[in-house]
Design a protein around this nucleic acid. Structure first.
Length: 290
DNA sequence: AACCAGGAGGAAT
DNA sequence: ATTCCTCATGGT
């Protein structure tokens, strides 16, 4: 077993990270020890790493441990937790904006990436149009039923496994037929190699959106969320997102949900860090669990 | 008890 | 090119 510690530049509030990702019941989190288990695939093989916060928001430090693949794991974990992207200039960018108060309240909340690109897409398809509580239940049932557990953490099923599922099997989990078709169809494309998600890391945002929206079940919203939470791209604003619309409505005290044109107007000022505007707007309407 | 939910596809205009 | 309808279930 290897262990490694790192220090990074603040602000970076890991307690807020845990608070946010604990909204997803799939994540195994120890709030007392400020620790999370991270299931990731390296060369297609599953490994679980532990990340523990041992510093403060202004002097963040982490203790990371795992069984193998130290170098590649550290690289991937740094990407997932955005350890090399200082938030100070992000906060500076929003410091005098309409989002000032929200950024202050959630100061040091980094963008945390999903642990797996394929899982990210599947999760976002499942989440389409559903309220968060039900969507998370569906996702959890899906992973618990067809995924696998290793070293205390859950992995999504492999694309090959999911491609072999039937619509009826997923309907038994309360998927709609269409959503079941979407997940199975996507899984077939990933399993066959027709869709190479890892290969998209070098692509431009728009090229990825164009490619992904060719897949049945993936519209612009899902592709944008893939860019945002799968790849960590900094300038996405999913304006069709009900949550962001509600956050904007609350922020500007609107009578009704903003139109698409209004979403464009509001967000114009937040370039080129729209992803952080999105993230913090989501945060502004997310409630703590329990 | 309606109405809405971190949408998308497909048909009808 | 836009607008409308359906999907399907759970939360509020």
């Amino acid at each position: 077993m290897w262990k490694e510690s790192i220090q990074i530049e603040g602000p970076y509030n890991f307690d807020l990270v845990l608070e946010r990702i604990s909204l997803d019941p799939l994540h195994e989190i120890d709030l007392i020890n400020r620790l999370i288990k991270v299931p990731i695939l390296i060369n297609g093989k599953p490994y679980v790493y532990q990340v523990q916060a041992v510093g403060t928001g202004d002097a963040p430090a982490f203790l990371i441990s795992g069984e193998a693949e130290q170098e590649r794991a550290m690289k991937r974990l740094a990407d997932i937790f955005q350890w090399n992207l200082p938030l100070s200039h992000i906060h500076a960018h929003f410091g005098e904006s309409k989002l000032k108060d929200i950024f202050e309240t959630h100061r040091g909340t980094p963008l945390i990436l999903d642990f797996d690109l394929y899982g990210c897409l599947v999760k976002n398809i499942i989440h389409q149009q559903l309220n968060m509580a039900f969507a998370q239940k569906l996702t959890m049932d899906f992973v618990h039923t067809y995924g696998f557990r290793q070293d205390g953490a859950w992995f999504y099923p492999t694309p090959g496994r999911a491609a072999a599922l039937t619509v009826d099997e997923l309907r038994a989990l309360k998927f709609s037929s269409r959503k079941a078709e979407y997940v199975i169809g996507l899984s077939e494309k990933v399993a066959s190699g027709e869709l190479d998600l890892e290969g998209m890391r070098e692509w431009s945002d728009e090229a990825i959106i164009d490619e992904l929206t060719k897949v049945r079940g993936i519209g612009r919203w899902t592709a944008e969320n893939f860019l945002l939470f799968g790849l960590g791209r900094p300038n996405l604003f999913p304006k069709a997102d009900i949550g962001i619309q509600n956050a904007i409505k609350l922020l500007y005290n609107l009578e009704k949900k903003p139109t698409m044109d209004e979403m464009d107007q509001f967000s114009e000022q937040w370039h080129p860090y729209l992803s952080y505007a999105s993230l913090y707007l989501w945060r502004s309407i997310e409630k703590r669990r329990n």
